[in-house]
Amino acid sequence: MVMIIQTYWEMLLKAMGQTLLLCLLSLVFASVIGMIFGLMNVGHNRALNFIGTVYVDAVRGVPLIVLAYFIFFGIPAAIQGLGFSDFRLTALQAGTIALSMNCGAYMAEIVRAGIQSVDRGQMEAGRSLGLSYGAGMALIVVPQAIRTMIPSIINQFIITLKDTSILSVIGFPELTNVGKTVMGNTFRPLQAWAIVGIMYLVVITILSKVSKRIERRVNRGR
């Protein structure tokens, strides 16, 4: 075990960095996607409701691994077929798109539930003062919704961090992928996967501790 760490620590840390990069990019895009589709789903516009529901159901109904294959292999093939023969997606690009779409769909549900947890009277009071729907959302409803959403958001972020490991299937050099290499090179699967597992565990534990602190901070102002 010590020998594996001595030989592969640089590679493993770099892989961890790739994992975190993929995760971070995806979380940023997923937050935006989640906000947009979540808001579409709580509004009263039938067409937007429909688009939002279709998006959430479609993405949640497809395994992430299939979505990743579809984007990494399927989309470039289709675009090449249209005559752009040089078009390719890197594993990072495809991975970020797939993970953002996946996490975004769950975030949309979190946003929807959060907004619906705010009493309708809050918006009505805002509207009765002359605020527009958008201003009522931005100034009154969403700030209150975010507080109830925080635990679910943290939970989703942790799931997404773990889901980065699925992107090893399209060859993205994140931690799990590098774990496979280490196992192959050393013929010590027990030690190799124990190290990889502990690395995930440490990062996720730090992430949830930090998040808990943020959560407490936000709730203090209530």
Binding site: E124, G126, I140, Q144, G221
Partner: peptide, 8 residues
Amino acid sequence: QHFNLFNH
């Protein structure tokens, strides 16, 4: 009836 003050 239920005031609807902005709680935040």
